[in-house]
Every structure is written in C-alpha cells, then in structure tokens.
C-alpha cells in the first residue's frame, strides 16, 4: 500500500489530485431518497431527545438519587401492601366475632 501523499509535494499532478473535488451524481429515484431521509428524521430526533439520559447516569449524584428513589418507592409499595392485607385480615377477624356461623363451638369464646 502506498503512503499518503504530502500536500506540499512538488509534483504538479499530485497537487492537482489533492485539490480535486467533485459531487457524485444522484443515482435512483429522488422521491425514494426523500422518503428515506423522512424516515430517518424522527429516529434521529428521538435519539437527540434522549441524549441527556446517558449523561444523567454518568452523574454520581443522579445515580444516588435514582437508587434512593427506587428504595423509597419499594418501601412505599410494601407499606401499602401491608396496610391492604392487614385490613383484610382484621375484617375477617372482626367478622368471626359477630358471625355465629363462624364462631368456635360453644364455650370456647369469651362472652358466649
């Protein structure tokens, strides 16, 4: 493989080739090309919209906040679950104190 040419090469042909610029002719349907760029457009915009996310994760403070917020959310969910199950449990226990069909055999419950 040939080494890259030095731009200050004294050879005139070499200098000409270094300076030569051209725009290739568009091949294919113009409408097709426009459609491709249209489809790429929203995805490119979406990537730009979420570009801040990796930067956010890179911040130690934001990372700590995320972990703490997740722990708080888990704890809150557990408290809500505990309350709901406690309510059901206590309601069933209360029903057993007033429903004779659920009460233990006579003589085993105080007051009856």
């Amino acid at each position: 493989m040939n080494p890259p040419r030095d731009p200050h090469d004294p050879d005139p042909l070499s200098r000409l080739l270094q300076s030569w610029r051209t725009t290739p002719a568009r091949i294919g349907d113009e409408a097709f090309a426009a459609g491709v760029w249209r489809r790429l457009g929203p995805r490119a915009e979406a990537r730009a919209a979420f570009a801040w996310l990796p930067r956010l994760f890179a911040s130690p403070l934001a990372a700590c906040f995320l972990v703490i917020a997740s722990a708080l959310a888990g704890g809150s969910a557990a408290l809500a679950y505990n309350h709901a199950t406690k309510t059901e449990r206590m309601a069933a226990a209360y029903a057993r104190t007033i429903d004779p069909l659920q009460m233990a055999p006579a003589g085993t419950r105080a007051g009856h």
């Binding site: 996310l53 890179a58 972990v67 997740s70 708080l72 888990g74 704890g75 969910a77 557990a78 505990n82």
Partner: peptide, 21 residues
C-alpha cells in the same frame, strides 16, 4: 454503566419492598 445503575435501582427497590414487608 446505565444498565448497571438501572439493575442496582431495581435491586434496591425490591430489597426495600421485601424488607418492609
């Protein structure tokens, strides 16, 4: 790093949930 952080957040949420329960 983002994936590790997300997994850590999920793990901390689950740990808090089961510990509180």
């Amino acid at each position: 790093r983002a994936i590790i952080l997300i997994l850590l957040a999920i793990a901390s949420g689950l740990a808090a949930f089961f510990a509180t329960r």
